[in-house]
Structure formats: structure tokens, C-alpha cells
Design a protein around this nucleic acid. Sequence first.
DNA 1: CGGTGCGTTGAGGCCCGTCAATAGTTGTGG
DNA 2: CCACAACTATTGACGGGCCTCAACGCACCG
Lengths: 240, 240
Amino acid sequence: MSNMPDTGPSPIPVLCRACEARHRGICGALHPAQLSRLARTAIRRECPSGSNLASAGSPVTSHANILSGVVKLTKLMPDGRQQVVGLQFAPDFLGRPFAEVSDVTAEAAGTVRLCIFQREELEEMAVESPGLSRRLHAQALRELDDARDWMLTLGKKSASERVASVLLLIGTHIDPEAEGCSPSFELPLRRSDIADFLGLTIETVSRQITALRRRGIIAVDRNRLITVLDLQGLESAAGG
Amino acid sequence: MSNMPDTGPSPIPVLCRACEARHRGICGALHPAQLSRLARTAIRRECPSGSNLASAGSPVTSHANILSGVVKLTKLMPDGRQQVVGLQFAPDFLGRPFAEVSDVTAEAAGTVRLCIFQREELEEMAVESPGLSRRLHAQALRELDDARDWMLTLGKKSASERVASVLLLIGTHIDPEAEGCSPSFELPLRRSDIADFLGLTIETVSRQITALRRRGIIAVDRNRLITVLDLQGLESAAGG
DNA sequence: CGGTGCGTTGAGGCCCGTCAATAGTTGTGG
DNA sequence: CCACAACTATTGACGGGCCTCAACGCACCG
């Protein structure tokens, strides 16, 4: 693509060498030269738990790759009711290409490390690189699948199935390296976040976690550390 | 794009002249020459109510524009529970570009007229035309927004709010020409479909429709024809 | 230590699901 | 046109699952 004089093949930017997003994320579509260009204006940042990464209704100025951590996407009703509409994990792409405003709020659930791009830079590259725009499209389709899967959870499952489902969801995504469900992991969400994700109350979530514990399917340490003792049991408790 | 000898500007194919999709749908991104190419292999078909347009798990062989009618997207749990995960209206694009299999089932809710493309044809054109692939991307993002909006409905709203929401949703989309909510329209869904969309039972849906009727917000004729008597009332009943 | 945020547990009530009977609608065939 | 069947929708009675309200335990922090 680049017709500038070269002193050999472009090296992969230092910043990108060990980055997960270069393999399974959107940067996998880019040549070293394109990576360099993007890396020039990209900045990495560590966001503490609870920081606001994007607000509903405010203009989108940047996009980012999630390097580590979990991002919580929420929607708010005029009267204050809140729904968590999705979770995103490394190495997901975070942001909304070509959209003026986002109507979801993104918040760090636990510490999150981001690689942040300037909006114009990324969109210009997407126009030039069909591979990149295709990965962005694929990411949108994946999120759409996730959203529709979760609609099934919200519309049809019982409280205990929902809680088992959210544990499976988090367990299978929290470690970007792992295949399948991690045997043990730290919940990035409070009970109230889980409740808002599941369409339940904190009390019901708490009771169902206790029930799973009593049935020997999971163990819970200090309220946040989940150990899956019986994965098959958890899967069947999630109802498919 | 085309470097073939021309006898002047390509005419717009007859098939496409009056088509809604050429303005607001994906075909709006195409030049007359591209339209002609696509129109050569495209076929129009009228699908009777209930026909299966795409099955979960089976390979995707074609894509289509919805010319008229309503398409119901559903997901099925192993034990038979069913969730309607979305409705699509003219001039929406129906299908899943670049995906091997679709995990949702698409079914005609009422008579549907489609303009069907061969999969390879469309995907080749998407590679060649950035405008087209961008419209496909935009459609995916719109569906994602719709899905997340509906997650809020499923997770947080009461039965009466849900029923008001679905009436508003259908009323504002069923007529592609109209601005806002149509004052009167025919429901494309049975009560059981509405229930599966809302995460409720048919009995609850029926009771809530009766309640809206008694409150003077809507009128119902022959179970399917809805007339909105008090749009503000309906909107506030939907809870925002 | 008291305050604050988070999570658990219990008691009671309500919304909506379940079950059952009835009524309305559509299509078919005499 | 009516009779009939099949499907669809409404209405009622009742029970259960989850919400509500409240008290308590626990960890953290000034």
C-alpha cells in the first residue's frame, strides 16, 4: 500500500509486539507499515475501576482496543432504571466506528487497560484497508450475536438459569488465552451489576449464587472469586 | 469502476426503479452499472406467511432486501423455548454477510416480498464497493442498537410497558414511507409471537392489550387491526 | 471506633405464569 | 349459506417465582 521508499520491510512497532489485538483483534488486519502509522498516535492507558469510557449521548472522539480487563456497557431509562446490555473483554474493539453518538455508556468493570486511537485516524485507515473495515464489521456482527443470545436469557430463562449463564459467560471470556471456561476467576462485577445484566434484583442474584454453592457446582471466596467445581453442572444449570 | 466500453451512462435497471431499497436500503450505495450487475442475478419472490426464510444452523446461500412485509427473527433453546430476537421491515437487508452459518431463524410474519441476491455475487460486490460494505456495516450496527434497546425492554420493563413498547415498535416501522407511528396498522404477529418477543405469556399479552383498550389508548378490531387513539398515552405507557 | 459500601438472609406480598373454560376467527366442504 | 373443525384470542381462578422491605454480617477506611 505504502509507496514511500523503504529501507526494508517495516518492523512491527514495539508497542504492538506482544499485543493480543494483533492476533485476534482488529489490528490483525494491518501490515507493519499500517501498524506503525496507527501506533504513532495511539496511546495506552490504564483506567481504574468505575471510570467512564464513553457516555450515552456524548460525541464519540476515540476508539480503543481492550488490552485487559472487562468493560460494562449500559443503557439507562429516563426514570433511572438501568440495564447492562453487554460485557466486552480483551482483545475486543471498543467503540462505534462511523457513528456520531453512542447510545450506550461504557464503564470499566475493574481495572482496564486500553490502546486508544484517534477517531479520524482509524476511520481513514478503515477506508483504505478493506481488511480492517471487514474486521470492524465482523466485530459488530459478533456483538449482535451476543446481544441476541442474551435476549434469550432475558426473555426465557429462570433466575437460576440466568445466574448460571452469567457465570459461564464471564468464565469463558475473562481469560483471552484460555480455551473454554476458566476453572477459577474473579468476578469483575458487583452483585448490582449482575442483577442489572440479568434483569433481576441483587437479592435474587445472591440467593441463586448461594443455591449454586450449596449444590456443589461452584465455590465462592470473598464474594468475588468464583471456582467452578462442576462445569457440566453449571452448563446444564444455564439451560443450554 | 467498470472499464468496459460504455455507450453512455448505464440506465437504472427496470427492476430497481421504484425500489425502496435503492434509496434507504443497501442498494443506495451502488452506481447504475453495479445495480445492473446485481439485478441480473437477483430474483424477486413473494413469500406467504409463515415461510421459512433462513434456518438456524443451516448454511447461508443467499441474502435479500425486504421489499414489503415483516420478517421475524427467532432463536430456539434445546428444550424448545423460543425467543423472538428481532423484527425486520422494508427496506431492511436480510442476511448475514461473510458468515458461514446463521444462528437465528428468519420467518415471514405475514406475506413478505423479497429481492434475493446470490451470496457470492453480493460479497464480491461488497469487496469492490466500499460504499456497499459500509452500508452493510451500518445495517449491522443498527440491528445491534435495536437488540440492545430490546434488552432494556426485556430486562427492566413491566408487562404493560412491554406490550406498549411492541405496539410502538411495530407502528413506527410497518410503513416505510411514514414518519413516526402509523395511526392504524395491522399486527403482523400472533399473540404467541408477541409473547415470545416480550418474554411473556399469551395470556398476559392479551390482558395488557385489553387494559390498553379499556384505558382508551388503542382500539382493536378483529384482534389484529390496531388503531392508536392516544399516541402520547402509548408512549408514556411504554416507559420511555 | 463509627461510617460506608457491599453482600446475605428472612418474611411477606404482588405480578405474572399456569391451568382451564369460553368465545371469536378463518377456512373447508356440503 | 350454514355446519363444522382448527386455530386463535380472551377471561377467570389460583399458585408460585421473584420483588420488596428490612435486618444483619462483613470488609474497608478515615
